[in-house]
């Protein structure tokens, strides 16, 4: 701002600079910006990055590189040597149908979780938007599962949903006779139940993200809508929901990509059962690793990494496009 102002002042009419350029023109501007940059650099020296970078390199970058390297070897618990084997592991995995079955289950699971978690989160955010005392309490209550250990959540639900568990006892008391439904026993529906549990655990986070989005909405726009006679329903879908686009991008992307890497909730509730219908890729990887087939397990986790990356770019791109109307 200061630079611009001075430039304008310097080029005051009736006082043309000798060389046709306003005094304190581009040259002065450049020197000012570089000094600003220098100041900024002094305040944020590059080596401040170092600790974070070292942690990142040691615990993320190097393991990821190894993940690529070991996928092309025959590393196992059975022998000491590690030999390169080219694409053998990939060919073997592609040949056996288990990998694709697991990939399919993983995608279905991730999509289900993303839908449930965001729908629940959005409903909660809208319901609890006003700052009443009750709402504040309810928000905290719905956020507690996010802080709980995922394994604990899984084991609690496993006990809750057992044929002789609390849910059946509750239903039994309501309908007046004994109920022994195995909620985690269906080879078709268990994946939906587990996805619901996963979504239940994380819906508090989506609620928080959506609530932040709702709270930062410009009041005048909503007021204008009200004056124009828009019903609350119409105002929500025509104005508030589109304005939530950045929150949707973040919440959907993290839910979808995060649940692709899911493990704990499924391990605690079903261990991939019944009949492997909830065996998401990470459970399969865990099982393979446990058999001592380390290279094969690494190959699978590379496949998972690639799949998440493959999903991430288009999903984020599409969601981002929705934001462009803002």
């Amino acid at each position: 701002m200061a630079t611009e102002h001075e430039t304008v002042a310097g080029a005051a009419p009736g006082q043309p600079a000798p060389d046709g350029l306003p005094p304190g023109g581009s040259g002065g501007k450049v020197s000012r910006t570089t000094s600003a940059e220098r100041r900024e650099r002094a305040a944020h020296p590059g080596w401040f990055l170092a600790p974070a970078l070292v942690v990142m390199v040691v615990f993320f970058f190097v393991p990821t590189v190894f993940n690529f390297v070991y996928a092309f070897t025959d590393w196992s618990s059975f022998k000491s040597e590690i030999n390169p084997v080219g694409f053998d592991n990939f060919v073997e995995l592609a040949d056996s149908g288990t990998l694709f079955a697991s990939l399919r289950i993983t995608v279905v699971y991730a999509v289900l979780v993303a839908i449930f978690q965001n729908v629940f989160g959005l409903i909660l955010a809208v319901l609890l938007e006003r700052d009443t005392r009750l709402n504040r309490f309810a928000r905290a209550a719905f956020f507690i599962p996010v802080l709980m250990s995922a394994l604990a959540v899984g084991y609690i639900f496993q006990a809750f949903l057992k044929p002789e568990g609390a849910l059946n006892a509750l239903i039994g008391a309501l309908v007046g006779h004994e109920v022994t439904t195995a909620w985690l026993g269906s080879t078709t529906w268990t994946i939906v139940v587990v996805a619901l549990i996963h979504a239940w655990k994380w819906m508090g986070l989506s609620m928080l993200i959506y609530m932040a989005g709702l709270k930062t909405m410009p009041g005048d726009v909503l007021e204008a809508a009200r004056i124009d006679g828009a019903s609350p329903w119409k105002a929500f879908w025509a104005i508030r929901f589109p304005l939530l686009a950045p929150a949707v991008t973040f919440s959907v992307a993290t839910a979808l990509l995060g649940s692709m890497n899911g493990f704990d909730v499924v391990q605690a509730t079903t261990e991939g059962g019944p009949a492997r219908t909830t065996e998401i890729l990470n459970i399969f990887i865990y099982r393979t690793f446990g058999q001592g087939l380390f290279a094969q397990a690494t190959t699978m986790s590379l496949v998972l990494f690639l799949m998440v990356a493959l999903f991430a770019f288009p999903v984020i791109k599409i969601l981002r496009r929705r934001e462009e109307i803002l």
């Binding site: 070292v54 390199v57 040691v58 970058f61 190097v62 590189v65 190894f66 390297v69 590393w75 000491s80 040597e81 590690i82």
Partner: peptide, 13 residues
């Protein structure tokens, strides 16, 4: 350099 060094030391069982 750090990552290369780490790889060199860790690339054995």
């Amino acid at each position: 350099l750090a990552s290369v060094a780490l790889m060199a030391t860790a690339c054995s069982d």
